[in-house]
Structures are given as C-alpha cells and as structure tokens.
Simulated scan of single mutants.
Amino acid sequence: MSSRTVPKPPSNWVSTAVSLPITTLKYASTEPVVTGGLLYVLTRGPPHVRERLLRPFANNLLSKNGATRLASLITILKFLTAIGVAKRINGALNRLALNNWSLRRPGASFHFGGAKSELVLITGGSSGFGYEMVKGFSKSARVVVLDISPFPNELARLPDVHFYRCDVTDTSSVVSICAEIKKNLGNPSVLINNAGIGIGKTVLETTNEECERLFKINLISHFVLIREFLPAMLQMKKGHIVTISSMASFFAAPGLLDYCCTKVGALYLNDGIRAECLTRYPGGEGICTTSVHPSWHSTGILKGAEKTLNERGIFPDPPSKVSDLVIEQVLKARSGRIHVPLSEEGRAGLRNWPLWAQDLSMGHVFARKRFEFGRDASSTLQ
C-alpha cells in the first residue's frame, strides 16, 4: 500500500496563509476573464462603476500622477489579457491535437458502467497510484492487475478484479501472462502502465544490475505491453493507453538521473504512440493516449525519504490526487497530458529556458538547502 502522508505542521499552514494573496494575484493576472473584465470596466465601463472601483486608491496609489499611473495600469492589463487569451487558445489547440484533431473522439464508443463491458489492465496495482485506481475502476469496469508484490486482500475481495503475479522485468513471462489474460478475460481496452521504482543514487553509486532492472520496470515493460494489447485495440477501434510518467520527465535531477531518463522515455513513448496511431495504424484514430506527471505523492517509491522531505518543507499528497484524475480522464474517453498538481504545469517548460536559468532554478550554481535523493542516508530510497 502507499505510504501515509505526514500531517503538515502548523508552521506550514502559516506559510500557506501568507502565500495565499500571492497565489491569488498570480492566478488573477493570468486569467483573461479577470484581466479582461477589469480592462473593460476601466476603459468602457459606466463612469460610476469605474469611479467606485478606483475610489479606494484615490488617496494613495493615484494621489500623484493619477492619470499617468492609470494609463500604465491599462497598458499592463492589455498585455496580461493578450497573454491570457493566447494561453487559452494554445491550450484549446493542444487539447484538439491530443484528441486526434477531432471535437468528438473518433472510433467506437467505450461502455463504462454497471455492465462492466470494458477491461482495464493496471501494472503495479498492489500499491500507490495503482492501488487507488483498482478501487476506482472496479466500480465501472472489469480490472486485471499485474504486480510482483502480493495483492492486498481488500482489493482481491472487489468484484470483477483479477490479479496475476508477474515480474514485468521478465519479458517472456509477461508475454505468457498476457496470452492467458486474453484467453480468460479478453483484450483490455484500457492499458495503464503504472509500475515503477526508484533507486535514489547517483550514477556512480548505482550498479549495472540496479539500473537495468529500473529501466525494464519503468520503460521496457511499457513497450512489451503495448505490443501485446494495442493490436486488439486497433481492431476494436477503441483503446486508451495511460502512461504514468512524472514531473521528473522534465528535469535531470542529481541522485535520480536513471529514474528521470526512464520517465522522459515514457513521455516520448506516449507521444510517439500517439503519432503512430495518427499516421501508421488503421483504426489508430480511435486510440486515446494520456501521460500523467505527478510531483510529490505519498507512494512506496518515496519510502525511506519521507523524513528528509518533510524537513525540506515537502509534504507529499495522497496518491488519490493522481488516481482520481486518471479515472476521470479514462471515463470521459479523452487524451491528455496531466500535471499533478496543476500548478506544476509551468515547470514542464523548464527545458526551454536558457541553460544558465535552468542551473539557477535547479540550484546547481549556488548552494541551497534543498532536497536531493541520495545526498544523505535519510534520503535514500528503500
């Protein structure tokens, strides 16, 4: 099961309260409905409304050079509104592209619900995100789980949930078990590549065997399972491949480099399968692809590092924060790229920054009290 989230100390609540006005201002400045509405009131709104809005600032901000400062504010609002509208248009075009340039998903319809017509396959379903997804999907679909860890009794008791003990690093075993699943349960219409591990060591501290195992679990198994189940999805003209990646797919973090490499590989695999479905496979237009990029969440992958994380002010969210979004995405049959929490989405563009800005942001230049895996014994994963 996933590890327990450590309660946030009072000081963290104080920090949250202090940062709330900044967070609110940041949101408002990037929301075109807010900036555009304010711009309209200040330029074309009824005079009595504009006067009432500006009255609190008449004796301070606008007491000197009021007209000039108001003109500057209007210019800033125009700029922010234009940026906000551009971001909205960009987001809408991205969503359209992710869903194969169609307003309605092409292909056959999914049938989730009480009849449980769909079969969802989840790797790593015994703990963490997978554990929560098994519970959620069992309400509207049949679920099959592949995991090397024992299956929790509370999941085994759920109706229409099936467990296969499987080491996904053993490709021949995976292929054999997939054949058994097809024979006994049919072909999954949803494949969730969720299984993953972390080592938390530098490259020179990691053995060849550890590195090879990590790549097999975090990335190679994705290729194997896609080859096993995508052909039937194409025949059915429906399918959804969900890739549990990470925010680590956008960073090369010291002490976690092998993990980051597998996660950027998982992201590229997700994007590449989408491209192949669009251009190479008959029936590919009916296949959804979703990559998921969690930040800090309380799963077994962080076991052993919780104390150091808390000392650095990092308090992982429960895994349900991720699983709930995955379930919602699959049930509405839409492709996507999900950042959890959503506030992390902006950090996904860090790779586009100048190298000097990346170094400063990541703390590679000036020493900073920050969390890094493997820096000390208490931050080593178990």
Rank of each mutant, 00 (worst) to 15 (best):
V6I: 15
V6W: 07
K8G: 08
P9G: 10
L20E: 12
P21I: 13
L25H: 04
Y27L: 15
S29H: 00
L38C: 10
T43A: 10
H48V: 13
F57M: 13
S63H: 13
I74G: 03
I76S: 10
L77Q: 04
L77H: 02
L77G: 03
T81G: 04
I83E: 03
G84Y: 07
R88G: 06
N94Y: 05
W101I: 11
W101A: 13
W101H: 13
R104F: 12
P106V: 06
F110L: 06
G114R: 15
K116W: 09
E118M: 03
E118Y: 07
V120R: 00
G125E: 07
S149L: 15
E154Q: 12
L155Y: 01
P159Q: 13
R165Y: 02
C166P: 03
V175I: 13
E180H: 07
K182Y: 01
N187Q: 04
P188A: 08
N194T: 05
N194L: 01
V203G: 08
N218A: 04
F229N: 03
P231G: 12
P231M: 06
S246V: 08
S249K: 01
P254I: 05
K263E: 09
L267C: 00
N270T: 14
N270W: 02
G272Y: 09
E285R: 06
G286K: 06
P294F: 07
S298M: 07
S298R: 06
G300R: 03
K303L: 07
K303P: 02
G304N: 09
T308M: 00
P318Y: 00
P318W: 00
S320R: 01
V322K: 00
L325A: 14
L325H: 04
K332M: 09
A333D: 15
R347I: 04
L355T: 15
A357Y: 08
Q358P: 11
D359A: 11
G363S: 12
G363D: 13
V365N: 10
F366I: 13
R368F: 08
G374R: 07
S379L: 12
